[in-house]
Design a binder for these strands. Sequence first.
RNA 1: GCACUGUUAGCUCAAUUGGAUAGAGCACCUGACUACGAAUCAGGAGGUUGGGGGUUCGAUUCCCUCACAGUGUACCA
Length: 599
Amino acid sequence: MLARSIAFLYRFLMEQWFDVTKRIEASALAAAQQAGLDTEVFTADVRPADPRFGDMQVNGALPYAKRHKTNPREIAQKLVAALESDEAVAAVAEISIAGPGFINFRFKPEFFLNWLKAFSSEEAFRKSASRLYANERVVVDYGSPNTAKQMHVGHIRSIVIGEAICRLLEYCGAEVTRDNHIGDWGTPYGKLFYAYNRHLDEKALKDDPLGELERLYKLGSNLAAEDETVLEECRQELVQLQAGEAESMALWKRVNELSIQGLKEVYDQLDVTYDHYLGESFYRDRVEAVYQELKDCGLSEESKGALVVFHPEHKRYAEQPFIIRKSDGASNYATTDLATMLYRHEHFRATRIIIVTDDRQKDHFEQLDLTTSKWFEKTGRNRPIFDHVMFGKINGDDGKPIKSRSGDPIRLKALINEAVDRAYTIVKKKNPNFPEDELRNIAQTVGVSSIKYADLSTNRTSDYVFSWEKLLAFDGNTASYQLYAATRIQSIFRKVDPSDLENLELKATVFETNEEIALARKIIEFVGAIQVTIETLRPHMLSTYLYELSGVFSTFISADKVIVDDPGKKARRLILCQRTLLALKAGLSLLGIKTLERM
RNA sequence: GCACUGUUAGCUCAAUUGGAUAGAGCACCUGACUACGAAUCAGGAGGUUGGGGGUUCGAUUCCCUCACAGUGUACCA
């Protein structure tokens, strides 16, 4: 009871400091006003500082002085004078000026301890973040494979990055719809059906539906390339499908069901669940409306027999058309994407639409965005914010897109299985006495996490080089390193006497060692790390933070023993352990990674 | 041709979008388990940020130019 009211008190006192960056920014702006600076121009520019100089820094004096052609150091001095008269700030931090006019804040150890006392639960951590995107309805379109084909390594990025973005948005209060815009309609079906009707291996279809469908498609494709008459029969198959001929539709439906079932097996392993699989076929009856509306708006025009949209104000898209109907009268990618934008606006009432694909589609989505904004504006619709979250390629050692030894792309399913197998070998070797079930479970988590983390730890816009070694590495900036740190913490909680965990906040004495302070400081940076990640939609920002947190924790745990005689010291170190675990678990789960009790 | 990316330690990657002495891991070299888990930690060495110019208090980041690589550029998705 007492402990609870104490916690409440701390929470009340520290509320304004949850987001340290924002709090300092507010003070800096107030100080600027007090110091008589032009607040229209002044921006605080608050960021974490190099620990050698302080905990946070305000850099705003420099650009301000530049603009006003005055001495930055003088500006900084005025700001500091005003900041020091702000009691709330002066009470928690030492303020100093360095170099040309950097203002450094070094927090007192009491401040760190109070912060950690105040924010002691997952819910408390989530609190500030959950306001960022409240009232937003976001449709995230990611994964998006073609049906009747196996997913290969190339698909991993969209799935993993997209899922992390979904989780981050949800954490920040948004209502998220996960939509898998599968490629389930179009020309490949003619060739697939041709082969299916003549060369189907029933047993193979039962054992490995996607593998067999893929084999049939390739077979059809090869046969059609060799023989004109086969090609013609493929076309006929397609015509029948597009005409909605019953037998053809039944087969299409069956292929689709098998495909989605096969895809879901992989998604299950990756812990990804979609709300919808609204593929291209879903929009096939909605494209007429798009043609009509764009014509009525005067946006589209006929060019070389096709219906296209030009954007005269754009240096490139004034000449390079956005083709919305091919000269043979058929729809294409652009058409269904426009129909999709409309549907997401009308049906999901999306305030924001995020599409996660590789960067080769950059032009397409720029044109889509331009076209949609004009179209929606002319028809009086609110335009959702649109983000094309793009990513680079996965290359082999030779700098070319990765292929397996046989020359085919590496299958995603095989990749996951191999990762889990390799993890099993290691886990078994480290822990020969763990029960078999647990070993399997740990291997599954470690293997899958390693794959995901490999993608989430690098900047999504760059290409990266694939290697089994790197993907399944268990040291350095990897999932395993962080999972290990988490298990170390939990191991301590298994060792500690339960009575030691009571009323930690009351018993804890103030931090003393460098390692304690460094860890406390790092935990508090969690808030900022989440914000930077969500603003830039770059999950590697969070990965980097979590890796650093794990590293600082490892340093702490090696230097400072937790279970010691001194009850105050023990309590404060247990608080550090608890909050580290909290931040690690929360952060990793946002990346789609589960933590383990032991490994 | 034009446009968009990119080029950072031997290798694989960072650098909070213009901030302080460019950081990690791997590999290499030294140390630390009778220890709350060594899947760890402490330390060393390794850099003209592709080349050259420019902008300014300050540049991996912005501008110009050259080189190299990748991608896109009218009916594939």
